[in-house]
Design a protein around this nucleic acid. Sequence first.
DNA 1: CGTTTTTGTGACAAATATTTGACAGCGACG
DNA 2: CGTCGCTGTCAAATATTTGTCACAAAAACG
Lengths: 229, 229
Amino acid sequence: MNPPRLLLVEDDPALAELLEFRFRAEGYGVSVTSDGDEALLLAAEEIPDLVILDWMIEGTSGIEVCRRLRRDKATAHVPIIMLTARGAEDDMIRGLETGADDYLTKPFSPRELIARVSAIMRRIRPALAGELVNVGDLTLDATAHRVTRRGQVISLGPTEFRLLKFFMEHPGRVFSRGQLLDAVWGTDSDIELRTVDVHIRRLRKGIEQEGAPDPVRTVRSAGYALEAV
Amino acid sequence: MNPPRLLLVEDDPALAELLEFRFRAEGYGVSVTSDGDEALLLAAEEIPDLVILDWMIEGTSGIEVCRRLRRDKATAHVPIIMLTARGAEDDMIRGLETGADDYLTKPFSPRELIARVSAIMRRIRPALAGELVNVGDLTLDATAHRVTRRGQVISLGPTEFRLLKFFMEHPGRVFSRGQLLDAVWGTDSDIELRTVDVHIRRLRKGIEQEGAPDPVRTVRSAGYALEAV
DNA sequence: CGTTTTTGTGACAAATATTTGACAGCGACG
DNA sequence: CGTCGCTGTCAAATATTTGTCACAAAAACG
């Protein structure tokens, strides 16, 4: 989970390499591909936090990749930044309507792209920007590694902390055990799905308080969610 | 839910009026001001869902407004779209670093701005961007796995949930038991047709409410349909 | 009205899913 | 080295859902 992951879909090898280097320097994990179909595979496999998508790529076209990412439930909420050629305003609008969150026309300065990416990251994963995240009566301070409920400090184990953090970054949404495993343990862990249940239990036990309702909702046959209210 | 509210901070009366008109047509509530200080007052008073902020305005400057909006806890998380003059890339970058979420250089097409606004809205308040399905007094939020009727949360078993979801995606249409089995249980299930009846009953029981009519219509010798009550 | 067809209902056992307590392995740390 | 906290797995205990029945109720039909 920890470093935010980008998926960069870019044709031009020089640009791709430059951007990859710059983003890694910013502390992002970066996957790169030049091919639309491969992009979809990668996205499905290791759900990224953000996709940077060139409009003109090999294989499946940019707009199609965008559409499919949106259609797949697992990636439906991943922000997408499109890169288009200067002057292709119609492409841009179609892209935004298809579900992209932002776009940039080439040529652009890497600095500008980075600024945009972090603007989006701040919104998507505020905890990474050192901000306090609030959900219901819970408060999470990522930099201080501290959780508070109704003013009371809560102490959680590392895994429970990451789990709660992930939930708090997506309040209300239901995640399957598999998704939680990917997000909290990492994509390449071969851990039993049931283990998630156990950690959910530990999380619940950790944050339970006299007279306070359990904010972790079990959605039978689907997964778990952190109650938005 | 009430319509999303925009705060438009724009100097140019003609542009302001045009945008206000367009956004109202899109279903947004719009407050307009040309003055930076007034913008801050308005924002504090009726916290908007999004701010569109011209860089060059009277009173407090755009960047200062941006900074202060971010500093005030109540408005710290409200997305901001900046409008800057063409070529002021540095302004733009400073803006994004100050906490703006997006920017547009003038001149821009209203359509483009609208596309961006709804892209952001989709991200911020997914509930407003059509992720909610509404039929009559029923509301279904697929990502939260939640059904609401007249504001009351309804709890349904997995199958009933899928059944209702399917109905809500095709409101008014009549489906035979066989079609429902295919759609909700899967094409390769060898389940008694009558089982559908039982689940329809469970669905009805789940969503029934004091003084509310039953939206599930039985069509004798044909099947069932969900009506918009 | 009696008969036939179709749908609504309550009950229930089997199947599924989740919760919980226990436990052994591991690594950090004194 | 011993202790302690954290992890991942299990399996038993619970809880919930599911598909079917049998029968009641309702509707269609002659």
